[in-house]
Amino acid sequence: MIKNVKRFGAALFLTPMILLGACGGGDDSSGASGEEAADYPERDIKGVIQWGEGGATDNISRTLAPLAEEELGGTLVMENREGASGATGAQYVYDQPADGYTLLFGAENPNLYQVLGISERDYLTDFKPVTIIGQSYAGIVVREDSEFDSLEDLIDHSKENPGDITMGTSGEGGLPHVASAMLQAELGTEFNQVPYDGDGPLATALLGNEIDATVLAVSAAQEYVESGDFKMLAVINDEPLDSAPDAPAITEEYPEFEKYLPWGPFQGVFAHKDTPNEIMDKLTESFEAAQEDEEFQETLENLGVNPLNINGEEAVEYLEQNQSTSTWMLYDAGATETSPEEFDIPRVDEE
């Protein structure tokens, strides 16, 4: 059974100086010996969710954790360490010994940290993917009683009244931030952006009338849409989704977004880059088997998540493609002045 511990809050933003000055994590010498790896796990494993409660990453992680426990033969103690667009949790995991006893349950954001100047941490250089669970999609949502009944209504109002619409975001590199950058670049919109710590707090803020609109993973928004609390004005995709049949694809009204698509958030589990191979093998095998559970597969389907369950080199290639697509999309949209080229990130068509 998963042990729930007190959620750990963190400052919403960390300065690059703090992030860059954090200790550099473990190395091979701090990892487990061959004998220790054979007995792994001998104690509780900490699962660090880089976003707050109630969001897509939190929900998927906490659903998968008990299934992984059964395969591992150990206990996963899950906790939320949100803040700085997920960089607080990522840095924390990186700073722990590379022994497989601290895992990062994360989303796509670390792929963008470097070009946005948020953190020097990066999935491809600082972590090993245990598994990429699945890819989901983003939806633009408002309250059910909102004056905006279509995406066109929202866009037109924003263009005619710059800064009047309060758009909730999850910080730089989060879904609302990236989506807002695309909207501004292509349509000339301007929102008053207010940051929160992930999908859960964003949904609460929208319910509480603190914000006018936001962008959520469809998996996090769907329950509110089905309960009649939210309207989903569009999905950021080039075709409608079976999980959100009433929400049109953004390209139906604005075909200029086709060049950015397909694109969407993902969830995965990551270990420190220096974690011993023997422990990585056990983690990979356990999480792969856990995701084959039929009820878990149904859960992902109901949430509108495309199951991937990939690891090893396939997962690395997926991360590389996602990073190339996302970073160049932000750069081309004018959301960052730092070119991905500075970090040797090629365009997808140049790989």
Rank of each mutant, 00 (worst) to 15 (best):
2 I>E: 00
4 N>V: 12
5 V>I: 15
20 L>A: 14
21 G>C: 09
22 A>N: 05
32 A>M: 11
34 G>H: 09
37 A>L: 05
38 A>D: 10
41 P>W: 04
43 R>F: 11
48 V>G: 00
52 G>V: 01
52 G>I: 00
55 G>L: 09
55 G>K: 11
57 T>P: 13
60 I>Y: 11
60 I>R: 08
61 S>G: 05
69 E>W: 06
70 E>H: 03
76 L>I: 12
80 N>S: 14
81 R>F: 14
86 G>H: 13
97 P>A: 12
102 T>M: 04
106 G>Q: 02
107 A>K: 06
108 E>D: 14
109 N>I: 15
113 Y>W: 14
116 L>G: 06
117 G>P: 11
118 I>M: 04
119 S>K: 02
122 D>Q: 11
129 P>M: 04
134 G>V: 00
134 G>W: 00
135 Q>V: 14
140 I>N: 00
141 V>F: 03
147 E>G: 15
147 E>F: 08
148 F>S: 10
150 S>F: 04
151 L>P: 06
162 P>S: 05
163 G>H: 09
170 S>V: 03
170 S>W: 01
175 L>G: 15
176 P>Y: 09
179 A>Q: 12
179 A>R: 07
182 M>F: 15
182 M>D: 04
191 F>H: 10
205 A>P: 07
210 E>H: 13
211 I>G: 00
211 I>V: 05
217 A>D: 11
223 E>G: 06
227 S>A: 15
228 G>H: 02
229 D>N: 04
229 D>E: 08
229 D>H: 02
230 F>H: 00
232 M>N: 04
237 N>Y: 15
238 D>P: 03
243 S>I: 09
244 A>R: 04
250 I>M: 07
253 E>G: 13
254 Y>S: 04
268 G>D: 02
276 P>H: 09
279 I>E: 02
283 L>C: 06
285 E>K: 15
286 S>N: 07
286 S>M: 06
289 A>T: 08
292 E>W: 04
299 T>Y: 13
302 N>V: 07
305 V>R: 01
315 A>C: 09
319 L>I: 07
326 S>T: 13
330 L>S: 08
331 Y>P: 07
337 E>A: 10
338 T>F: 03
346 P>L: 10
347 R>T: 13
347 R>M: 12
